[in-house]
Design a protein around this nucleic acid. Sequence first.
RNA 1: GUGGCCGUAGCUCAAUUGGUUAGAGCGUCGGACUGUGGCUCCGAAGGCUGAGGGUUCAAGUCCCUUCGGUCACCCCA
Length: 425
Amino acid sequence: MRFKAPKGTYDVLPEKAEKWEFLEEAARSIFKIYGYRPIETPIFEATELFARGIGEATDIVQKEMYTFTDKGGRSITLRPEGTAPIVRAHEEHGMSQWPQPVKLYYAGSMFRYERPQAGRYRQFYQLGVEALGSNDPALDAEVIILLLEYCRSVGVKEMDLLISSMGCSECRSSYIEALKDFARERISKLCPDCARRFEVNPLRLFDCKNPACGEVLAGAPKMIDYLCDGCRVHFESVKGHLGKAGVGYKIDPTLVRGLDYYTRTTFEVQSGYLGAQNAIGGGGRYDGLAEELGGAPAPGIGFALGIERLAMAVEAESGKIPGEYELDVFVVAVDDSVRVDAFMLAQRLRGEGLVAEMDYLGRSIKGQLKLADKLGARFAAFVGPEELAAGLCRLKNMVTGEQEDVPLGGAPAYLADKVFEEPVK
RNA sequence: GUGGCCGUAGCUCAAUUGGUUAGAGCGUCGGACUGUGGCUCCGAAGGCUGAGGGUUCAAGUCCCUUCGGUCACCCCA
């Protein structure tokens, strides 16, 4: 075959898809408990939405977007993240008139043109929440706790919560000046990459892994020391809420996230089991985004988490993720004359809510039993001329090997009782 | 976009210093006396050795290019 899944993409085969379904269902369930409601936005949007929302200078906008021109001449981009589209929908549908705050969650694929690596793909699946219309620090804490609780509920035990504050437009700009003053005097001691960062986005200086740069920057001014009164009070309150909730966290002043829209609270949940891309999820507050997109002001906060990375962390720590294929009954057609009767029995079994399978390849009885065994069937139901003539159906317990004849008409209900009322195994 | 490693049947891997029809295990399908699984045994199907060039009498084995995978950087979920 000449075709393969495009670079950086992959097929989620049944075994993995079942695990993803489990994780996603668990997420939807806990998101709802926290009062969030589902929303689906288009998988592509006007390029300008992301360019303005995420920031022209960011890596995402500069080199990672899947952009194309549609037949109407519009510049379209496959969504690289979920927040900007939701803020767009919030404005478009007047959600500021809904009971505030508006709490939404989403699940879906995102696209970024990057070199694939462990835990990073060109199409990846995110789960996320957004709460718009309030700048209450309690909401910041709620969102952070929701992320942690969800991860914990599906089996992630060891994870680190990093938090910081990016300040608001006012205090951040004065901080950036201070940082640039500091860096300008030491520019000769920094690596070429950092020299470039200095020009493009000084906040990124802290991302450098170069030890020499790290030493130089250790003495640099920190954003959290430059917060204005409002931002400082907000940050203190977020920490206070987390503390009351018994949530452990680490303040990381260098936690600078790659999207320009963040203000005040930013956070990231990391796992030591993921390799270089160690963030399971992250997010922050974006109080200026709605205005940046040309809408009415609307503060907001949210997070996104990558299901691929979550699944990796869960499997590394807890071994298995639930979500197995289970077969209740395999209907065995004893010979060709009864294949239609077998088919009808399977239909009636399914009508009782039982997972029923049968043979579609004309296999021998032995072959059918082998298949039933491979599929893990709990029961086999024999349909044969002799049983049919007597109005019976022979049931075989595939675990114990016991067999019994029951009236054909009552077989589905009889089996349903056995399957649903008796403990598995 | 940059760099390291890698690319043989569906999967995991073999294939003497380049040498003749590329093998095995698992899996799939079938069979082992007539209506019954899990163990065992037998058989079959399934590879243009990622692709394209080159070197050579001869290439899965060497060289180049390209595509893909993988890991790291940049950055992020």
